[in-house]
Amino acid sequence: MTTRRQADGGIVVEVRGSLDAATVDALRVSLLDTLQSDRPALMIVDLTYVTFMDSMGIGTLVAGHEAARDIGTRFLLRNPSEFVHRQLRVTGLTDLFGLPSDPSSSRTYTV
């Protein structure tokens, strides 16, 4: 996982590999710490390279969304794979994350 600041002040967190019990703690800490310390206007979680996500990964994204909402930060998911989109759809969270019903219709979603 890498975190970088964009020229506009937004922060991009690029996640790689699996989001499961073995890996989500690092992502959760990174999201929450970055939100608290930097208070960006925008946080983008880039899921391009996420190959697997279970309920722990979903819970981490929800926690990031809630923490961002609490401080007034806009939270975006970028480039979720069809697998990741399907996991969110199956769990009934597509509305929370503002995802369209067809994952190929757009690749960046407002959360």
Rank of each mutant, 00 (worst) to 15 (best):
Y49Q: 14
S101L: 15
S30I: 01
V24P: 03
Y49W: 14
R28D: 12
P103R: 10
D95S: 08
V84G: 05
I11M: 10
F83T: 03
R107S: 13
G98P: 11
Q87T: 04
T73H: 08
A22G: 04
V24L: 04
L27T: 07
T34C: 06
I58Y: 11
R74C: 04
I11F: 06
F52Y: 15
T94N: 09
P40N: 12
V62R: 04
S105K: 12
V45T: 10
A67E: 14
R89L: 08
T23S: 12
R86A: 12
V50I: 07
L35H: 13
V90D: 11
Q87M: 14
F97H: 09
P40M: 13
V45I: 14
D70F: 04
L47A: 10
S18E: 15
I58F: 09
R39P: 03
L93Q: 11
V84A: 15
L96F: 07
D70N: 15
D95I: 01
F75Q: 07
Q36R: 15
L32P: 00
L93V: 06
Q87H: 01
S37T: 15
T2G: 08
G9L: 11
G57P: 02
T3D: 02
H85C: 12
T34S: 12
R86I: 01
D54I: 03
V29T: 14
S101V: 10
V62G: 02
H65V: 00
R16H: 12
L93M: 15
L96H: 05
F97W: 09
A7K: 12
T3M: 11
L27D: 03
G92F: 13
Q36H: 11
I58Q: 10
S18R: 15
G72C: 09
